[in-house]
Simulated scan of single mutants.
Amino acid sequence: MKVAVLAEAAGETRVSAIPETVKKFAALGASVAVERGAGLAATISDADFEAAGATTGTRPEVLDGADLIFSVTGPEPASLAGAKEGALLVGALDPLRRRDVIEAYASAGIEALALEWMPRITRAQSMDILSSQSNLSGYKAVVDAAAAFGRAFPMMMTAAGTVHPAKLFVMGVGVAGLQAIATGRRLGAQVSATDVRSATREQIQSLGAKPIFVEGVQGIEGEGQGGYAGETSAEYQKAQAELVSGHIAKQDIVITTALIPGRPAPRLISDAQLATMKPGSVIVDLAAEAGGNVEGCVAGETVQLHGVKIIGAVQLARTLPADASALFSRNIANFVAAFWDKDAGRLALPDDDEIVSAVRLTKNGKIVNARLTG
């Protein structure tokens, strides 16, 4: 089989393969062709890919005869002209917001596989691009907050007096939130965290942070569907708002991470709550692209309200392109390896496999994913 690795559109710094994974595909018996310049933003030269065994060329050249097409973000359908019918497109395709693009893939006979819809099950963990990229986003959110904050994070005992530690509050304890907690602790902040899922209390404590939970009103027991939190009752939302209002006024840094798939991000911090925070405080809203957890947040911008800096974080993994590319490309390589038929020397995707049915969007000229057809 031939693998084509595409260069990304302007603004995307990641690449869907690295020399390490090129070698893995070669070991499976596949050939790899990389579009020229695909890895430059991630500090991978064409010569690096060639040294690993890949060929490099123009997009038409790499697409010619390709059975597998890798891309970090879904390419425009017109840019895939020349791809053979039945080729598999693998990447983060944003199906719900780009339905017209998915339909165009189907019309072109391309089988699209959206890895961001990877099910949250044990055997799929090594293929989960959302987790790998969110991990980096959680780290970078704290680093960006530290850069925007006008004080130091750790306690410092000096001859001139004591510098008190910054207080950091993480709202939403998924992959990004857990990494934000760990990073804040490493930098020396006093860290607290909250989530609507009661099962996260132990995770927060295990990282040395203080759990802040609504008591006496039931939230969500265990994990939400797919590892995400779901909707809570009006009673719980009221109790949580009151709890947050009392806690947030004492915080220096807040990281918000709450998302509900397919819906606008839940509002966690209101303008009235912002007004209670200390001037110079910083909020990083990781849900900015989905409407934001913070009232007044603007995706891709830093705004200041009531003396509080609100960073509308967008695709923070892109700001760490080398590591983000390495993790993303390994996720793809693990997916391919899991379904590689060694005897046939090709990728075999059983219709009845729960991973395949979750990520497959199109087949035989039609949209086949239940999340798009239901």
Rank of each mutant, 00 (worst) to 15 (best):
Q125F: 10
V294N: 09
A313S: 12
T43V: 01
D351I: 01
G177L: 11
G292E: 11
I181C: 06
G291R: 06
D341H: 10
A299C: 04
A317K: 04
V191W: 10
I18F: 01
A30K: 00
T183A: 09
M277G: 03
A324L: 13
V356K: 04
Q304R: 14
P165D: 11
I181F: 08
T256M: 10
A112P: 04
G11K: 05
A265H: 04
A27S: 10
R97W: 06
A10I: 12
S325Y: 11
P95E: 13
I110F: 10
D128V: 09
S357T: 12
I44F: 12
Q125M: 15
R185H: 07
R346A: 13
D128I: 07
E202F: 03
I260P: 00
K140R: 15
L93R: 02
D352E: 15
L361E: 09
V298H: 03
M277D: 08
G161H: 12
I44S: 00
D128E: 14
G365Q: 08
S79Q: 13
K366P: 00
L130S: 07
A124Q: 11
A41V: 00
S131F: 13
G174I: 13
A124Y: 08
L187Q: 09
L372N: 03
I260H: 06
V3A: 10
T257W: 11
S134N: 14
A180E: 10
R59E: 05
G109E: 04
T55S: 14
D252I: 05
L113R: 05
L187C: 05
A159L: 06
I355W: 03
Q179A: 09
T183D: 03
R197I: 04
L286N: 07
E215K: 14
G219D: 08
I332M: 08
V175Q: 05
L130E: 09
K278R: 15
A299R: 04
A344F: 10
A10M: 12
T373K: 03
A104W: 04
G74D: 12
I311E: 05
T373Q: 04
G312H: 09
G57E: 09
F49T: 00
V191F: 11
L88E: 01
D353M: 12
T21M: 03
